[in-house]
Design a protein around this nucleic acid. Structure first.
Lengths: 160, 160
DNA sequence: TTGGCTGCAAATATTTTGCACTGGC
DNA sequence: GCCAGTGCAAAATATTTGCAGCCAA
């Protein structure tokens, strides 16, 4: 299950070929980014990063390619409240995230107990479970030091 | 921690008062819906439902009220890929969901082990964890029978 | 060569915001 | 009566789609 970052790019290319999808330079540029990085990029970040490799790539193409990869299970989509989606091509299988609600930093802690919980849920509900999300939110060590918010009624707008 | 559905409405009203927020008929109508239902409504569903009680309520008000309740921790927001947010006022504390990717049905299975995992993550990462999400996706028993999708390249668009 | 892919621009969808008015307390 | 809250309409975001032209296989 565990993927070697260095192996992800060829692996993703292989899968694309296998499914008779074309390997355009735009796709390659995107693959390079999401295959090797530990980050969880937003579409916007990807759009900026991709300029290095293939500057004319459009957002539409990024969306379409991500959607394709998602359907093939080669990229993991993270749905974060009010922040838009983030994408992880390096570890495309479900895994937990720890997210700082202040600065947005995201970690991938080790945790293996989910498979058991998952099958427990399946047994309990009768659902045929295919994947899951497990996210923890809070303050990263750095943001804890720098002090925090005010009171609820004010805080309301602060974000976003 | 466990909330009695019948107690939620007065409880939410109490909290609003406590924070010096006004109890308008629009808010009351919304509270009635999300306090008593086991459902996880979308803003659109809420907009439709609220017409019964207070027909002139606008979407903006619903958004504003939900945002307020969210900040007070009196409603839980569920971020589901491509479906927009869902809201649960009945059980505003983090709890697992089992979601059918075909029909959208959502269950709230019992599960209590998260607190331990949460503190394990805190210890491991140094984050000060405040809340979490745990969602399982798959097919509900009903949708399993009715057979499923085709192949990946086609499936692509089918949804949404 | 040719059908899948791209880029653009327009269409959708979703949520936020500014502001004049109103009604809860 | 005051000011938080409402509703409208416009704006800001985010994502999808139609289509003409292009290029990877």
């Amino acid at each position: 299950m565990k993927a070697d970052p260095q192996q992800r790019l060829p692996e993703m290319i292989r899968v694309l070929r296998e499914k008779d999808c074309r390997l355009t330079p735009q796709r390659l540029a995107l693959l390079k980014i999401i295959a090797s990085s530990e980050e969880h990029h937003s579409v916007d970040q990807l759009f900026e990063l991709i300029k290095t490799d293939f500057p004319t790539t459009s957002r539409a193409t990024i969306y379409k390619t991500l959607s394709l990869l998602k359907a093939m299970g080669e990229v993991l989509e993270l749905n974060l409240a009010g922040v838009g989606s983030r994408y992880d091509g390096n570890k495309p299988y479900p895994h937990p995230h720890v997210i700082c609600t202040n600065c947005g930093r995201i970690l991938d802690p080790e945790f293996t107990g989910l498979a058991d919980i998952s099958s427990e849920m399946a047994k309990k509900t009768g659902y045929h479970i295919t994947h899951h999300q497990l996210n923890f939110f809070g303050l990263c060590p750095q943001c804890q030091q720098e002090g925090q918010p005010a009171d609820i009624k004010e805080e309301q707008d602060g974000k976003r």
